[in-house]
């Protein structure tokens, strides 16, 4: 039982890292990017190729996956996304759905439609027992790594100069520009960083949630749940939402496999109806 709980937590942490970038673009920049999962998928595939074709070690692949997705995110932001910031939500939705479809077909064409496997190094396999509770080493690895990322992110947003510049730019773009904050650069870096995190999540998650060309579509709703249920006023909300979602999903699928997915959807609809601004957002 506790093992499952821990699996759920690990899954939740993974979802948080996957969705953190979206929480920033959607929550702070108010930009609906349904194609966020495509950047996660890119990180996953980068890891697969680096490991299986070039034989690089897994731990080295993780930062490379981050860099690959971040670079991709940067390029897309500069070329395409920045034109969409001022558009209506409908335009943003249509645009990013288009990107999702293109990424699915392109990945299918380049890599084939089959599931991709990542062979974890031996030291990340197996279980350890803590107080009689069996814990997968890889899950533990994920929990530790993702917790560190979450703390780092929170620190960055709250304490660093970049974080305050971002918050200012989001609050009032024109005023921030007047204060000499390089708004365009801040947005581009933020977008790239969020994409990079997604890529890292995709690399980490390939072993747990699988990796195939339909990844961006399959997890689109999960990312959106994390952000909308969590609310968009801070990163703590999405983190809690991701943990809840992860635990509920894993537990649900284990305990009542017949109902697995329904539980998630039902919770989401209930939250959206009762608190459209998110479960953990500060009430006005």
């Amino acid at each position: 039982m506790l093992t499952i709980l821990f699996d759920g937590i690990a899954y939740g942490m993974l979802l948080f890292v996957l969705a953190a970038g979206l929480a920033v673009t959607l929550g702070l920049m108010n930009f609906v990017n349904l194609a966020h999962g495509a950047f996660a998928m890119a990180g996953g595939y980068a890891t697969v190729i680096l490991m299986n074709r070039f034989g690089l070690p897994f731990l080295l692949c993780l930062p490379l996956a981050f860099l690959f997705s971040a670079a991709l995110g940067f390029i897309f932001e500069r070329l395409l996304y920045r034109h969409m910031y001022e558009r209506s939500h409908l335009d943003q939705v249509l645009f990013s759905i288009g990107l999702v479809f293109m990424s699915i077909a392109a990945t299918d064409y380049l890599m084939g439609s089959q599931q991709q496997n990542i062979h974890l190094p031996a030291y990340l396999q197996g279980r350890i027992f803590i107080g009689g509770v069996g814990i997968g080493i890889y899950r533990l690895f994920i929990v530790v790594l993702c917790s560190l990322m979450a703390l780092g992110l929170q620190w960055m947003l709250a304490k660093t100069r970049f974080g305050s510049q971002l918050r200012a730019a989001v609050d009032d773009r024109r005023a921030a520009r007047g204060l000499g904050i390089p708004v365009v650069k801040v947005f581009a870096i933020t977008f790239a960083f969020g994409s990079g995190l997604a890529g890292l999540g995709g690399a980490l998650g390939a072993e747990i949630v699988g990796l195939d060309p339909t990844f961006p579509l399959k997890f689109m709703l999960y990312f959106l749940i994390v952000v909308t249920v969590g609310g968009t006023s801070s990163l703590t909300g999405p983190l809690l939402a991701a943990l809840m979602l992860g635990v509920a999903d894993v537990m649900g699928k284990y305990l009542v496999p017949q109902l697995g997915a329904f539980i998630i959807y039902a919770i989401m609809l209930a939250v959206l109806m009762l608190r459209p601004q998110g479960l953990f957002a500060r009430g006005r």
Binding site: L80, H83, M84, R87, D91, L94, F95, I97, G98, L99, V100, F101, M102, S103, I104, A105, A106, D108, Y109
Partner: peptide, 20 residues
């Protein structure tokens, strides 16, 4: 045949980018 959805995505992106 297999990549119709690529073109569908492409059309969406172009249409929106240029401005519907």
């Amino acid at each position: 045949p297999a990549y119709w959805i690529f073109w569908m995505g492409f059309i969406l992106v172009i249409l929106v980018l240029i401005g519907r």
